[in-house]
C-alpha cells in the first residue's frame, strides 16, 4: 500500500489572529505554525499502516520554503519521503489540482487528507481531489481499516456514525477518531536525526485555476459587556432584545 498524506501548515490554535495590508492578508508575525490537527490524525493512522501493514508513507504539502519545518516534523514522526509543491496555497481548488498531479505521478492508492484545515476551514480539498482523480471518497472519516483492496471506514454523521465499505484507490477527509489525541506521535530524537537524510522533493506547481480570491478579512465583533436582567423583569429583557440587540 502506498499512502500519500496531505498536510497543511496552519497557525497553532493558541495564535493571536491579526490581518495586514488593509485586512487582506493574514499577519504571520509571531505566529507558530503546526501540522493541521486533522492531518496529524491522518498521519498517525498512516504510521500505523506503515508499522502494522508495511505501507509506504509519503507526505505532501503546498507552500513555500517556510513550511519546511512542518514537513520535517512529519518526516521525523516517521513518513518515508516528502514532497513540497512550491506555491502559495491560495484556494482549495488550486491546492486540490496541485495535489492531484502528485497523486497521479506517484501511484498512490490511499490519499489521506484532513477534513478541513483549521486556518481557513474551507473543507473542499479532499472532495475536489477525489473528484479530479475519480477515486472513492469518504469525508469526516473517523475510522479506517484496509484489507487488501478493500476498505472499511466510518464517517461521522449528524448524531451518529455511518459504516461504509469501499475499495482502493481511496481519498479520505480524516479527523479525530482515526486515532485519538493520546495516540499522536511526538517525534523522537532519533527520528529527528533520521529526518535529515530523508528525501524532500520540491516540485514546481502546474498551471491551475484559482477559483476564488480573498478580498477582505474581518474579525468577529468584540464581545460586549454582559447585562444582567432580574429574572422577574421579563418586560425589560424583551425590550433589550428587541431594541438593543435587535434579535427579536
Amino acid at each position: 500500500m502506498k499512502i500519500l498524506v496531505c498536510i497543511s501548515n496552519v497557525p497553532d490554535t493558541t495564535s493571536k489572529i491579526n490581518f495586514t495590508d488593509g485586512d487582506t492578508k493574514f499577519d504571520t508575525n509571531g505566529v507558530q505554525f503546526v501540522i493541521n490537527p486533522n492531518d496529524e490524525f491522518g498521519l498517525t493512522r498512516a504510521m500505523w499502516f506503515k508499522e502494522k501493514q508495511g505501507a509506504t508513507v509519503h507526505v505532501v504539502s503546498v507552500g513555500g520554503p517556510t513550511i519546511d519545518p512542518t514537513i520535517r516534523k512529519a518526516l521525523a514522526i516517521g513518513a518515508d519521503e516528502a514532497i513540497r509543491i512550491n506555491a502559495e496555497p491560495t484556494d482549495g481548488f488550486f491546492v486540490a489540482q496541485q495535489l492531484a498531479e502528485v497523486v497521479k505521478n506517484g501511484d498512490y492508492n490511499l490519499v489521506i487528507a484532513g477534513r478541513e484545515s483549521i486556518d481557513y476551514n474551507g473543507g473542499m480539498v479532499p472532495g475536489i481531489l477525489a473528484a479530479l482523480l475519480d477515486m472513492n471518497f469518504v469525508n469526516t472519516c473517523i475510522s479506517l481499516e484496509i484489507d487488501g483492496e478493500n476498505a472499511t471506514a466510518q464517517r461521522e454523521i449528524d448524531g451518529g456514525k455511518e459504516t461504509l465499505s469501499t475499495s482502493l484507490p481511496l481519498v479520505i477527509g480524516g479527523q479525530k477518531g482515526l486515532v485519538q489525541e493520546s495516540d499522536l506521535k511526538i517525534p523522537n530524537m532519533r527520528g529527528i536525526m533520521m529526518a535529515r537524510q530523508k528525501k524532500l522533493t520540491v516540485v514546481e506547481p502546474v498551471d491551475a485555476l484559482n477559483a476564488t480570491q480573498e478580498t477582505k478579512f474581518e474579525k468577529p465583533a468584540a464581545k460586549g459587556a454582559v447585562k444582567l436582567v432580574d429574572a422577574s423583569n421579563v418586560d425589560e429583557l424583551i425590550s433589550l432584545l428587541h431594541n438593543e440587540a435587535k434579535v427579536i
Partner: peptide, 10 residues
C-alpha cells in the same frame, strides 16, 4: 536551527 526547534518542541 530548524532542527534545534524541532528537538526543543518535541
Amino acid at each position: 536551527s530548524e532542527e534545534h526547534i524541532l528537538v526543543r518542541d518535541a
